[in-house]
Design a protein around this nucleic acid. Sequence first.
RNA 1: GGGCGAGUGGCGGAAUUGGCAGACGCAAAGGACUUAAAAUCCUUCGGUCGCAAGACUGUGAGGGUUCAAGUCCCUCCUCGCCCACCA
Length: 819
Amino acid sequence: MKMYDFAKIEKKWQKTWRDKGLFKIDEKDVKQKYYCLMMFPYPSAALHVGHGRNYIIGDVVARYKMMRGFDVLTPMGWDAFGLPAENAAIKNGVPPKESTLNNIAKMKKQLDSWGVEFDWGREVTSCLPDYYKWTQWIFLKLFEKGLAYKKKAFVNWCPSCNTVLANEQVVDGACERCDSTVEQKDLEQWFFRITDYADKLLIDIEKLDEWPEKVKIMQRNWIGRSEGVNIDFPIVDSDEKLTCFTTRADTIYGCTYMVLSAEHFMVEELIKDSPGKEEIMDFVRKVRSESKVKRAQSSEDKKGIFTGRYVINSINGRKIPLWIADYVLTEYGTGAVMAVPAHDQRDFEFAKKYDLPIEVVINNPSNPLEADKMRSAYEAEGVLLGSDQFDGIKSSDAMENIADHMEKEGIGKRAIHFRLRDWLISRQRYWGAPIPIIYCDKCGTVPVPENDLPVLLPEVIEFRPTGESPLKDAPDFVKTKCPLCGGEGKREIDTMDTFVDSSWYFLRYISPKMENKPFDKDDVDRWLPVDQYIGGVEHAILHLLYSRFITKVLYDMEYVSFDEPFKRLFTQGMIIKNGAKMSKSKGNVVSPDALIAKYGADTVRLYTLFIGPPEKDAEWSDRGVEGANRFLKRIWNLVAILEKAPETGGSEEAEGTLLRKMHQTIKKVTEDIDGDFHFNTAISAIMELVNQFYSGMNDKGKDCYKRSCVEDVLKNVALLIAPFVPHIAEEINAFMGGKTSIFESVWPVYNKDLLQTDIVTIPIQINGKLRTTLEMPRDISEEKVKEMVLSDEKVLEKVGGKDVRKWIILPNRLINIVM
RNA sequence: GGGCGAGUGGCGGAAUUGGCAGACGCAAAGGACUUAAAAUCCUUCGGUCGCAAGACUGUGAGGGUUCAAGUCCCUCCUCGCCCACCA
């Protein structure tokens, strides 16, 4: 047997898998389906070992499930639209399509070099027309259902770059590129009405019992359902009223003023006759122009202004002043807040600053409150006072009682509000799927007919950041005919958020080439939901929520028969280097290419899997890679031992111990993979088995295992390591006479009877402290156990003569003598 | 400010869910082989005391429950991630 020539071995098997199509499946012919999906990447530059973790984990799962007899679907594609390619175009003049396709080619090569296999016949690329045609179709379906609509909305605006910025591009309230202060600008934008599905999206989280709890909590918080009361406050000297939302109706008697957001729709109307009108409007305009990010930052310093108007608190008929303040969000609730300074920290700070009255209406039973002495609001539970007939009631009960009362009197109504906002999908950008809408002077906003899809993205175009989509400078694109009247029409020039592209790609993999439909319903119903989805936690909220939403819409429209796309979710941890997340800007990326050249793909895979539990972050160490390589060499060396092993003879004892270890290892590895992907402990178990092999030889000589025994062990080792290090496993399998791929073999099964010995080593504790261990036959009676323990010298020395108060005997596990 | 999670040797991490703390690996030290180095193999490796057998101590800090606590309960400290003026 030659030395371990990983380069040759890996090349050979990668070619074999590819030529044969290891994971090639027929979507029509399925016995036991398993859809293993990895989040498709954005084709940026080269992948580093941190990215690699994701695909290696997925590849292990796919290969393992294949050995368990499943028809495994494991496709890959590219989330190929997006800002970086466009920025590169502005900077270097390379067209986005070109740079994107180049990057895809590079990344594909890297995936190949890892031995990560996919059904490449199903590759999808979201920036190509045969894909985005159907992204546009999704838009049309939502439009048809009234779930896509246009409205004015504020966007982050950089006055110096003259462009719209995504939230991530706003750093500390300033433009990430030029550092100018970001403003808010009001633009007409397309939205998806995801809030219509807020309730369903929330309730159905219950169904996701194979998702990490952490992700479910994040989604719940993001959707943010709260129950409360909408309360009407009549405006003094007007027939109108203002409605505010509160979750603390119990504090209504402590409401000493009311506040509106600067964007509230009634602001102009309310202040039109106010004496300080100009000053108020100046304030309002200033607040409106500030970015949300900046506003949140100055949250300690709340600013406001009195409108000169008053409203009535109907529950006690009290007249209270109406203010406008920057701490009220316009998008949440009603954009108006009843302020209760004594029991809400934000109102408290504002009241202190502007000298508004603070009145305690919930008392702290253990430490009665005095309004003038309070240093912060009392937000906890308590007992009501100063609240008419509700005095003396516990605040939690009062919430219900007061809500009942208000509903009866017609002052207010119970209401539910969500923090979830509608999904803004418009981007004033070039590199995205065009929104399939045409504006006609006569017919208005007209959807592009399905037959006219795709609306092609023009390829020759100027890139100048003007604040509007570069598409407006493509006259051939903009100018079109109205599909309804045939008259002059103008195309929508905004493109779609890339999250729209990625919210349905897992469906397209089933029917990647289909031309007249986005996917075949029967096939999709056969393969979905996805059995295992694998990706980073950074997508725990947006991507997963949007995908769930789109799936539910398609379900309601009967395009699919399932209403949740991902049955089981796994979020892997980041790879850290020098204490920081690997990133180009930090200069701490480890490229897998050089490591693969030096040690081989199997070594890099093994180390990546061994580094720690895959759901946790892990620190990368190049030295650790060497250890993984050493282990593979030790396995490789077993082949040489097999060649020299004697046909007969061998030590019965050594073989017995080794085979027991082997069956224990099969059990452990199987359970670790089936559980929560604890590959690190699975691998260490295999290492123990191999160590046992060598230490047996060390004790009993090199002929202690006969040929058939070595063969048995090596065969099982090859099977156990196959999902992790597939190339070397295939090579060993072939060497041992395997005619087919090891992945067509059956996963090994352990023999229960061979797991245990007849003699067990039992720790003996005295008063909970370990004193010695004793060997005794398995399953002997308690009397015998006591007898054996008490006849032991070391035990006698400690116990001798004294009273034993209690025996704790865990059969075959532990003994504790209490004195 | 809110939510979630984590603190175990020089380092990455194990620990049948309350039962021998430190598996497995890395690094380090000593030894074998070698002219030498690399590779490989063997041994040691939480701390203190001891020639040794062994004793004591030890899982962020302090308390508690228990025959028994890394694991459960209470108080506190530190770090990471996500959300963040959500009424």
